[in-house]
Design a protein around this nucleic acid. Structure first.
Length: 138
DNA sequence: AATGAGCGT
């Protein structure tokens, strides 16, 4: 019995933090996005409406090789939604960029930077329901 | 038309 508990604790501890964050992203206590989820991708909030992907990349290129820059645009109007993502080739560069740029102003607006959450790939998981199945002819 | 936390057409 004791061994079983120790085994369970060891297995839970082995789950990477970023995996927990993406799995339980709907629970705020597991989504401390400002803390160090190890990733090379930064979430950049607080962008001025007028910041485009090129100027965002320019603002972060001095910290290392930027492998991807995305700004979230509104589907219909094409206006910026005021946040975006900067992905670095090196995790270290992402971390130093975060430390240097978080709270710093870009075009007059303070940036809010955290590590990006893993993009949700499949959509909501539909849990199968058991119990009341419709009667089926046989 | 304007908007100001957020996690991506």
């Amino acid at each position: 019995m004791r061994n079983g508990i120790e085994l369970l604790v060891r297995r839970v501890s082995a789950i990477p933090q970023h995996s927990i964050s993406s799995t339980f992203r709907f629970l705020p206590q597991f989504c401390s996005s400002s803390s160090a989820s190890p990733s090379s991708k930064l979430f950049i909030g607080g962008l001025s409406w007028s910041v485009d992907e090129q100027s965002l990349k320019d603002a972060f290129s001095s910290f290392g090789e930027v492998s991807e820059v995305r700004i979230a645009y509104d589907k219909g109007s094409g206006r910026s939604r005021g946040y975006g993502f900067v992905d670095f080739a090196e995790e270290d560069d992402a971390l130093s960029a975060k430390h240097a740029m978080d709270g710093k102003g870009l075009l007059g607006r303070p940036l809010r930077i955290s590590f990006a959450l893993a993009r949700v790939r499949g959509g909501p998981v539909v849990v199968p329901r058991f119990g009341k199945q419709p009667k089926r002819d046989r």
